[in-house]
Simulated assay, not measured.
Amino acid sequence: MKYTRLEIPELILCEPMIHKDNRGFVYESFKKESFNSFVGFDVEFCQDNLLSSDYGVIRALHTNTLEYSQSKLVSVLDGKILDVAVDFRVGSPTYGKSISLELSSQNHKQLFIPRGFLHGFVVLSHKAVVNIKIDRYFAAGESIGVRYDDSLLGIDWKIDKKDSILSIADENLPLFSEVTSAFKYNENYY
């Protein structure tokens, strides 16, 4: 597995070494020891969530309150998405900045998003099946969300707005400036 720190260094691109032959391919999608060694702290994933969505579905931008925030490892089992992470840590030098990456079943790339980041994605293929590993269980009533199309964030979702499909809850999320982040920047948070 090849790991690369992105422009926001806490976000990590994970790229497996793919072994192909006439039968297909095989690769390790996660190896705890090498992953934790690169990240620099122990991430104990406790649950995998599979999401199936059609073209234009936007699931964004979400996190949980500080006590219940989650680190995530996002991969695509079928199709293609644009995966987005926004730094939500007050005081961070990259606060409010985002990273967008295309993840697909063809490129096999994964994105690690640590606690303190908003996360979302849009489906760019006809359908997509997304796998998200998380390190804390969901806690009802602890969700935080921000509008995906907030002009302050300036995220290019790579689809026409008329093609976007959102939940009613996501359509009514507040703007980034209206949400007070409980996350304070601390490089030793994890």
Rank of each mutant, 00 (worst) to 15 (best):
G79R: 02
V84Y: 12
D156R: 06
I18L: 04
G96R: 06
V122N: 12
H108Q: 04
V57E: 12
E171Y: 13
A139S: 06
L153R: 04
K2C: 06
L66Y: 09
T63E: 08
R59K: 02
Y95S: 04
V122Y: 05
T63W: 08
E187M: 15
S34F: 09
L11P: 01
K32M: 01
G154I: 09
L77T: 11
E178P: 01
I8Q: 05
D21I: 03
H126C: 03
I113V: 12
K80Y: 07
L73W: 03
V76Q: 02
A182G: 15
V90E: 15
I168S: 14
Y148N: 07
D48N: 13
Y185L: 01
S92I: 01
T4C: 10
D54N: 00
C46W: 06
V39G: 02
D150R: 00
T180M: 12
Q110M: 00
Y185P: 02
L152R: 07
P16I: 06
F30Y: 15
N131H: 00
N22S: 07
N107L: 04
L51G: 06
R136T: 09
S125V: 06
C14S: 03
K31N: 12
R136W: 09
L124M: 12
F30I: 00
A139G: 03
E171Q: 15
N172R: 01
I159Q: 13
G96F: 12
K161M: 14
S167P: 14
G79E: 13
T65N: 10
K158H: 07
Y27H: 07
S167W: 11
D163N: 00
T65F: 04
G141C: 09
F138D: 05
F30S: 03
L61R: 04
L11R: 02
D21E: 06
V122D: 13
R23E: 03
L103P: 13
I8G: 05
F35M: 12
I99V: 15
E187F: 14
C14A: 13
S69Q: 06
K127S: 14
N49E: 09
Y55I: 12
K162D: 12
I155N: 04
R147A: 15
K97S: 13
V146M: 08
L66W: 09
A128E: 09
L73R: 07
L166I: 10
D87P: 00
V179L: 10
T4Y: 09
I113P: 04
F45S: 02
V129A: 08
D163F: 01
E67N: 09
G24N: 00
G120T: 01
E171V: 11
F41W: 13
A140G: 13
C46P: 02
D170K: 00
I81T: 05
L118V: 00
I165V: 11
L82F: 13
S164M: 14
L73Q: 01
A128W: 10
